[in-house]
Design a protein around this nucleic acid. Structure first.
Length: 289
DNA sequence: CCACAGGACGGCT
DNA sequence: AGCCGTCCTGTG
């Protein structure tokens, strides 16, 4: 396989660390040379920021440039988005300054659904381990620079795993959820392609909520981080609850803060860009914790 | 030994 | 509709 390369010049709003460390993806690892290597669809891609350029390398991709433009959402003007959101208040402006290179990825919908079901009550190292083992067993091998990588398994391949198989990979109580959702999607009880036809985010969200293991937070993550690409959602995890409480609500006990209140506040302040605002706030709060 | 980590679910009031 | 115990596993 011949190695391909694509270089993005004058890359503002593109910082690999910000992108890969803001909790939206699980298949990227940092290399010794500060580049990142990850798996996108059937490709292994290496990303490195050099001065103001970003160098993408891969093998086997039909069109690396198009793949990268799609995945990293390069046609979206983040400078404009950041300018707009920075006007909201000083808090958000500061968090945007902190995570100025964040971009929200266009990740495969199926992969995003399963990944975030696994993320429930879980931490990132373990989530990544589970997904790696799953891919190793049910994905396809790719060799690059003499190292083995594995694509995320298709629904069809993953459906060959029994609940016990999944438990063996370390999914814990999420095994049944992944099993049920895999089969539900494969049997088209939920047709993923149809989700793209529906404009109303809440209707898509309600459909996602019928999947086992998909609750409010996971549904919002799927809507935001996948190719569904909805910004009018506001995933609330412990970190977002914490930061929203500290900045605005100021309840003595953050666990008592009502999710509805946070959602209302986010909608009022950040409007239809609330999903992107959430990423800056989350990254800032979690990274400085 | 226990607490807890990017929640969901089900069985209670 | 809200509250709360429970769910597997690795780490501190």
């Amino acid at each position: 396989m011949k190695e391909q390369q694509y270089i993005l010049e004058n890359a503002t709003s593109f910082e690999p660390k910000h992108i890969f460390d803001c909790g939206q993806c699980f298949r990227w690892d940092e290399e010794a040379d500060a580049s990142y290597t990850g798996i996108v669809k059937n490709n292994v891609i290496n990303v490195k920021k050099v001065d103001n350029s970003v160098v993408f390398k891969s093998v086997g991709a039909d069109n690396l440039e198009q793949l990268v433009i799609d995945y990293f959402d390069l046609n979206r003007n983040y400078e404009k988005i950041k300018n707009e959101l920075s006007k909201v208040d000083e808090y958000l402006a500061n968090s945007i300054n902190y995570g100025n290179g964040i971009r929200i990825l266009n990740q495969d919908l199926w992969e995003t659904i399963i990944s975030f079901i696994i993320s429930a009550n879980n931490n990132i190292p373990r989530i990544k381990g589970i997904i790696n083992r799953m891919s190793q067993k049910y994905g396809t091998e790719i060799i690059w620079n003499e190292k083995k990588y594995y694509t995320f398994p298709t629904a069809e391949n993953l459906s060959k795993a029994t609940v016990e198989d999944l438990r063996g990979l370390g999914l814990g109580f999420r095994d049944v959820r992944v099993y049920n959702t895999t089969h539900k999607i494969l049997e088209k009880q939920v047709n993923l392609k149809e989700l793209y036809q529906e404009k109303d985010t809440q209707k898509v969200r309600n459909i996602l909520l019928t999947l086992d293991g998909v609750g409010p937070k996971v549904a919002d993550c799927i809507l935001l981080f996948s190719t569904l690409k909805r910004f009018d959602v506001f995933p609330i995890d412990v970190w977002v609850r914490r930061v929203m409480n500290e900045l605005y609500i100021k309840n003595e006990d953050e666990t008592k803060v009502n999710k509805k209140d946070i959602e209302k506040l986010a909608k009022e302040k950040y409007g239809n860009l609330e999903g992107i605002a959430q990423q800056y706030l989350f990254y800032w709060k979690r990274d400085t914790a």
